[in-house]
Write a protein that binds this DNA or RNA. Structure first.
Length: 484
RNA sequence: GGCCCCUUCGUCUAAUCGGUGAGGACACCAGCCUUUCAAGCUGGCAGCAGGGGUUCAAAUCCCCUAGGGGUCACCA
């Protein structure tokens, strides 16, 4: 059925900041909808605001989209390159009397707004220039007054937005005013450019954030005036910050770029975002390919969601354990480099060592950044011991001696391998008449400085005989000195 | 303030056309497993914003109240 009028959707961000989680999810829903319906996913850059748009934001936006894996089929299109089209469409409206020139100055308008505010009344453009006689317009033009173009809103009646998620939403035209479609500098406003572009791109379904719902009646009136075919609309709920307010910079990590540099995997972020406002049922971990088969706008809910990194972090841990060792090592590498643990490019033994460290550590972390943080002692000396660990495992009578015995055992052990080390530890503990744990815990603290981490024998093998023995003795010395 | 949208555990959510002990996930707590920490497994805690209707029966339909969000720019 969706065969004929094949679906075309667009994600149309404005390059005035980083791509945040709300925008990214809107992009994702557009993407899923397009893929689920075998339609076309278009990327358009809404950069009509010359003042605030920046090229570096555009580039970052594209990069974020690529990183997330939201590949688009067409575009990116840039609104700033179609300025002429908007002007000619606006002129059409002007000629047909559906739009008119307005010479009111920003100051005059601001004053009107101020008065309305003081009086506690809603402000609507009073229509000062709506019925200006032609000769007056001509005169103002001659005098060189700058002007904008405003759309003539029908005086009565109502405009009904048919929304796929919220069904019918009615707006009384009385509450709408003749809004500006072309600014005095000749560039279009968002509501106008958006309508013209959606038509030019033959967009069938406009899927965007709920904040646009209130603007939709204006756009509908506008596209009716232009004689365009109306697209279907779907306004997805907003994503709110933990304090229920609109997302902004002060809320910590909210941009895709930040999540990336905090060590999240794109598929985890995608999965997490998808579940914010959409649910296929009881499943939680859903790969993108599966999402596509399950996605429908009918299952998108109406309620704004508060994002919560706790669940995202859990999910990231799930994905971290699912990906291949090769991929994991590759993804984590920059984090090790940033932490100053190693330098790329990695070659030979260093590369192999890194792979093994990554494999040893990855089971117990939830982000790539945590992974690097959990690996420091594989690359650096142990310069401090965990306080609680010291209390529990070092301060006990005979700990130093225990460590020296362990060091002695390892020094001559042949071969030096996982199973032989473990066997040696078990027989040593038996020989000394202590539990294996009594030997294992201080050893871990001595060679890693921590009380937690990968299996002890795994660490020992990785560190090697020399380093292990060295650290054991250093710890023994430290204990003796501490005890005076 | 006008207009618009929304309201199920702390958070994300499920509950086909009204009948459920209101389900799942994260987090939290407890236990198991275990050389530690995770992971995993088992169990627990916890919710229909409030008030009126309609109905044999309401989380579900209607109304009101409250709360939250959005929008009212020569921003997008």
């Amino acid at each position: 059925m969706a065969q004929l009028g094949s679906v075309r959707v667009r994600f149309a961000p404005s390059p005035t900041g980083e791509l945040h989680i709300g925008g990214a999810r809107t992009a994702l829903f557009n993407y899923l909808f397009a893929r689920a319906n075998k339609g076309t996913f278009i990327l358009r850059i809404d950069d009509t605001d010359l003042e605030r748009s920046r090229d570096d934001y555009t580039e970052a936006l594209l990069e974020a989209m690529r990183w997330l894996g939201l590949d688009w089929d067409e575009g990116p299109y840039y609104q700033s390159r179609h300025l002429e089209d908007y002007r000619s469409e606006a002129n059409r409206l002007l000629e047909e009397g559906k739009a008119y020139r307005c010479f009111c100055t920003p100051e005059e308008l601001a004053e009107g707004r101020e008065q309305a505010r003081k009086a506690g009344k809603p402000y609507l453009y009073p229509g000062t220039c709506r019925e200006l006689p032609p000769e007056k317009i001509e005169a103002r033009l001659q005098e060189g007054h700058s002007h904008v173009l405003r759309l003539r809103i029908p005086v009565g009646g109502e405009t009904v937005v048919d929304d796929l998620i919220r069904s019918q939403v009615r707006f009384s035209n009385r509450d709408l005013d003749d809004f500006i479609i072309i600014k005095s500098n000749g560039s279009p406003t968002y509501n106008f450019a958006s309508v013209v572009d959606d038509e030019a791109l033959k967009i069938t379904d406009v899927i965007r954030a709920e904040e646009h719902l209130s603007n939709t009646p204006r756009q509908q009136i506008c596209l009716e005036a232009l004689g365009y075919k109306k697209p279907r609309y779907a306004h997805v709920p907003m994503i709110l910050a933990p304090d229920r307010s609109k997302l902004s910079k002060r809320h910590g990590a909210t941009s895709v770029e930040e999540f990336r540099s905090d060590g999240y995997l794109p598929e985890a972020l995608i999965n997490y975002m998808a579940l914010l406002g959409w649910s296929p049922g009881e499943e939680e971990i859903i790969p993108l390919s599966k999402m596509i088969t399950l996605f429908s706008l009918e299952r998108v809910n109406k309620t704004a969601a508060i994002y919560d990194t706790t669940k995202l972090t859990w999910m990231n841990g799930q994905y971290l354990r699912m990906i291949t060792r090769e991929r994991l090592a590759a993804e984590a590498l920059p984090f090790y480099e940033d932490a100053g643990l190693l330098q790329t490019p990695l070659e030979g033994e260093a590369a192999e060592y890194y792979q093994r460290v990554a494999a040893a550590v990855h089971d117990r972390v939830r982000t790539l950044a945590e992974m690097a943080a959990a690996s420091t002692y594989f690359y650096r000396q142990v310069d401090s011991y965990d306080d609680k660990g010291v209390k529990k495992h070092f301060r006990k009578e005979g700990s130093a001696a225990l460590l020296r015995r362990a060091a002695d055992t390892l020094r001559t052990l042949e071969p030096f391998a996982l199973d032989t080390i473990e066997a040696a530890y078990r027989s040593l503990s038996e020989e000394l008449g202590v539990s294996t744990g009594r030997l294992i815990h201080p050893t871990r603290l001595a060679i890693s400085g921590r009380t937690m981490g990968p299996g002890l024998f795994e660490i020992i093998v990785l560190l090697g005989r020399e380093t292990t023995v060295e650290r054991l003795e250093k710890a023994a010395l430290w204990i003796e000195q501490e005890q005076g």
